[in-house]
Design a binder for these strands. Structure first.
Lengths: 148, 148
DNA sequence: CTAATACTCTATCAATGCAATAGACATAGT
DNA sequence: ACTATGTCTATTGCATTGATAGAGTATTAG
């Protein structure tokens, strides 16, 4: 039931990019900058951000003043999307996956007890990750900072 | 966010053992019998059941009339226990794990947005798996069979 | 007592995926 | 032109997963 480093790093980077810039404009950050804040290996994050870009969640600008920025408003990017891109399906077993279903070979899916429980688990996970946006996470984090 | 084959096989076997025997007595099954029902590799399940036995969830009897049986009533064995033994912590990242906490290195845990969300996810997963017993699963499965 | 049967234990294996590193290339700004 | 940044592909070491093999031990049937 574990999130990979790839998934973790990707999420951390996206959350950083979701924090509103001082002047309220779109936040553009360079890989090195993100890695310094979150203590992540630069070359590894390069790959990860590239994957997220190719999946349409990020955009980038090259050259001296370059960097990465969100392709859509942070309210419209759900954590579930990011995790699926970097770590694959949310479901514990594929026979309860919505996005990547595969039969599991049990005699009767309808009466498979394991399948029922794992279906509940997948719904619980997806219920959180598909309903939490980057904006939600950013806001929650900043709220916690304020009250300390 | 995936359950390994080891975890899946172990759960399937435990669920089989939790089904009440015809005469209401304790159910004793041999590895070969379980594997035939659930289409699992015999030698692999041997290891898995042995692990579960060494963890105190199963008992066994050797020899011709031998087999495995639950060490406790099925009402007292939660799925979370089984998964933790075979697959490790339920938490997506270790910094939100109750049983196997480890700091993750983010600057401030209290205000880490990722940590908050993943804490919710871990609670959702544990909320299901630690509150569902083998007896619950067995009953649910048999109920589904009846109404078809 | 002996053979058959089923659990016990340790070792080994191939394949896969994870995490990371390396380096050559393309592009944008000064 | 020079430099800083993103782009792309390859490679590597390592651990884990999923599985198989085989020798050993207890128990029962005959």
């Amino acid at each position: 039931m574990r999130l990979s480093k790839r998934g973790e790093y990707g999420l951390r980077a996206m959350i950083q990019l979701a924090h509103p810039a001082a002047d309220g404009s779109l936040r553009v950050m360079q890989i090195g900058e993100i890695c310094e804040l979150e203590k992540m290996p630069v070359k590894y994050l390069e790959q990860i951000l590239l994957t997220l870009k190719n999946s349409g969640l990020l955009q980038s600008k090259r050259g001296v003043t370059g960097g990465y920025y969100l392709a859509k408003p942070a309210e419209g990017i759900m954590l579930g999307q990011i995790v699926r891109i970097l770590d694959g399906p949310l479901a514990p077993i594929r026979c309860v996956s919505q996005m990547a279903y595969e039969p599991c070979g049990c005699p009767d899916e309808k009466s498979c007890g394991l399948r029922m429980v794992m279906g509940d688990v997948r719904n619980a996970i997806a219920g959180i990750l598909d309903n939490t946006s980057l904006a939600d996470v950013s806001a929650r984090s900043r709220a916690a900072l304020k009250e300390s």
